[in-house]
Computed example of a mutant assay.
Amino acid sequence: MSHGDERDYRSEPGPRTEDPYSTIGGTRQTRTRLPGDDNDGYGRRPVRNTRSLAMVVGVVVLLIAAIALANLGGGEGKGSGAGGGGKDSATAGAGPTAATGTKPVQGKNGTIAAGFAHDEQGAQSAAANYAVALVSADILKPDSRSAIVRQIFVAERVDELEAKFSQAYDQEFLDKIGLDSNGNAAAGLTYVSRTAPVGTKTVSYSETTATVEVWCTGVFGTAGVSSTNPVSNDWFTMTLQLQWTGGDWKVDSFSQKDGPAPVNTDRTASNADEIAKAVEEYGGFTYAR
């Protein structure tokens, strides 16, 4: 969710299951009981006979060969370059790892991916990467916000949107979330705004324009012992209207809405130090459809 909705981005926790063996969120724990004769009393497993070993090796070899053949055949019949990732390339549908044969990202413009393929797949990749940048902590910093806006939006919208972002993220807003005029948290605190796209969907597509929805989750807030705005997670969908201009996909406008959100689990929350350390140590990704 964008920072403009920072005050109410947190949703109420959903109902927790009363079943102690619930599999929601992977919380079910399973114990495997090993046969009593699997060891010799000293923690050692018996030596397998050569026939069993040969069978295992044979199965592994067959699996590796099957995977190799599948990878080699994944790109056959798929277009590459312009038009290669449209409706005919597996429809760029819900399959999270469906191969298309098109390289959707060619490079980077600063820290943001650039050079997206001129097709539906490239538009989805652009939308996913731009959604991450638009809800990042850097968008709150005046020094980096201008560069982000100029990299993401079509040229004719840059000045207008720079002014709107500056108005939305004024000092009054920054004060409410505990940041100074440069968008930095106080000493000992870490402001967190990290978004991860879960999936993308093309609403409409042509050679020059595209509308793409990006389903996202993310963590937002300030990590630190004295924080009054603790880090929590959110789920939201961002819709981006894109134009093909200057050899790349750029944003003309965007909007967002809450959800879809899953049921909250009863997983224990990490402390502020763990969250701050994770943000510092784990880098982000370039997202490609």
Rank of each mutant, 00 (worst) to 15 (best):
A133Q: 13
N129D: 14
R157H: 07
M55R: 14
A133C: 09
N109T: 12
V263W: 07
K103I: 11
K164Q: 08
S193Y: 12
Y9M: 03
P142I: 01
R28Y: 01
G224K: 01
V59A: 13
A185M: 14
V251F: 01
D8V: 05
G284T: 12
E76I: 15
A126G: 02
L174Q: 04
A133F: 11
T265S: 07
F165G: 03
T245Y: 03
P46L: 10
R10D: 15
P13M: 11
V279E: 14
A126I: 03
L161C: 00
K164R: 15
I275M: 04
G41W: 06
R10P: 11
T202H: 02
A187N: 09
R267G: 10
Q124H: 02
T268S: 14
T200I: 02
G283Q: 05
S52G: 03
F220L: 15
K277L: 10
F153Q: 04
V105E: 05
T100C: 07
G284E: 12
H118T: 06
A128Q: 10
M1T: 14
I152C: 02
R51A: 14
P262W: 03
R267S: 12
F165L: 06
V132D: 00
W215I: 13
D8A: 10
N233T: 13
D88V: 02
I148C: 08
A137G: 15
I24N: 14
G283D: 10
G74E: 13
K257D: 05
F173N: 04
A82G: 03
T190M: 04
G86A: 10
G247N: 03
R31E: 11
S136I: 09
L63R: 07
G4P: 07
T97L: 09
Y287C: 00
L174C: 04
R267T: 13
F116Q: 10
G259D: 04
T190R: 02
S89V: 05
A186H: 05
G81Q: 09
R289I: 02
Y287E: 01
V60E: 14
F116C: 05
F254P: 00
D40G: 14
V198N: 15
N71M: 08
V263M: 11
P142Y: 07
A90Q: 12
N129S: 09
R145V: 09
V263P: 01
S166C: 03
S2E: 09
L62D: 02
K164D: 15
I177L: 08
P15R: 03
A65I: 12
V135A: 14
A147M: 10
F165D: 08
